[in-house]
Design a protein around this nucleic acid. Structure first.
Length: 224
DNA sequence: CCAGACGTTGTT
DNA sequence: GTCTGG
DNA sequence: CCAGACGTTGTT
DNA sequence: GTCTGG
């Protein structure tokens, strides 16, 4: 699963890695939660753009945005069939940049959060977006695809975000890519792309947002 | 035909 | 919007 | 994802 | 316990 992540890389670095034109300014964020606006890379009029979408998909046919359960994630195994995701899977695919993401492991007496970061550069989550239009205006929203966790990740949690290689960005974003090719991209990424370590429980509260959240927790036994 | 649903996760 | 259930 | 809230009535 | 907010 992926329900909290961090992105502090400068927007210029994102423009280079994703070959996209940023249409927003970004402040560093170390505790990004569902329902907040997040940067996504998607096709714009003339090329790739980096824009903000609400994290938690609101389908175009929703009666009220915010009604119904939050859809921060979509299972990659069923995304092509589920009514809420099928349309966006065909037409509205996006990349969601992240330095890394948090997962919580149940331990006696509570939950221990871990930060799983990119071994190098910035991660690209596979995402979908949709546009809801109501009387009050337009809401662009997005969701992060998940897949089975593999390797050391699996000791913390059984799901993880789909993370794409740079070589896959164009295929994922191209509306003409056949569904069977897309499905081939929806796999757990190689273990070598990730590093992980326990972090302070402060990350649990979304009110906390500082660089200390992603730092390794001193003295914490780490057998993941 | 119309009405109603449309999601994931973790925990028990 | 599109599918399912009645 | 976790943290935090969770309510009505009548009176001013 | 369950929903809402971030």
């Amino acid at each position: 699963m992926c329900g909290r992540y961090a992105l502090s890389s400068p927007v210029q670095a994102l423009e280079v890695q994703f070959e996209a034109e940023a249409q927003v300014l970004l402040a560093p964020r170390y505790n990004i939660a569902p329902t907040t606006p997040v940067p996504v890379v998607r096709n714009g009029g003339a090329g790739r753009i980096l824009v903000l979408h609400r994290w938690g998909l609101v389908p175009a046919w929703s009666r009220e945005p915010g009604a119904g359960a939050p859809m921060a994630n979509a299972r990659s195994e069923t995304v092509a069939e589920k009514p809420a995701f099928r349309g966006p899977f065909r037409r509205n695919r996006c990349l969601i940049p992240a330095d890394g993401f948090y997962e919580w492991r149940a331990v006696p007496g509570g939950k221990q959060p871990f930060f799983i970061r990119a071994a190098e550069g910035v991660l690209a989550f596979a995402g979908l977006w949709d546009r809801w239009e109501g009387p009050e205006g337009t809401l662009d929203s997005c969701t992060i695809l998940t897949t089975a966790a593999q390797g050391p990740m699996a000791r913390i949690h059984d799901r993880m975000p789909v993370i794409l290689a740079r070589e896959a960005y164009a295929q994922w974003l191209d509306p003409a890519t056949p569904p069977d090719v897309l499905k081939g991209l929806l796999r757990p990424c190689p273990e070598a792309w990730l590093r992980m370590h326990p972090v302070d429980r402060r990350v649990g509260s979304v009110r906390n947002d500082d660089p200390g959240l992603v730092e390794p927790l001193p003295g914490e036994p780490f057998d993941a």
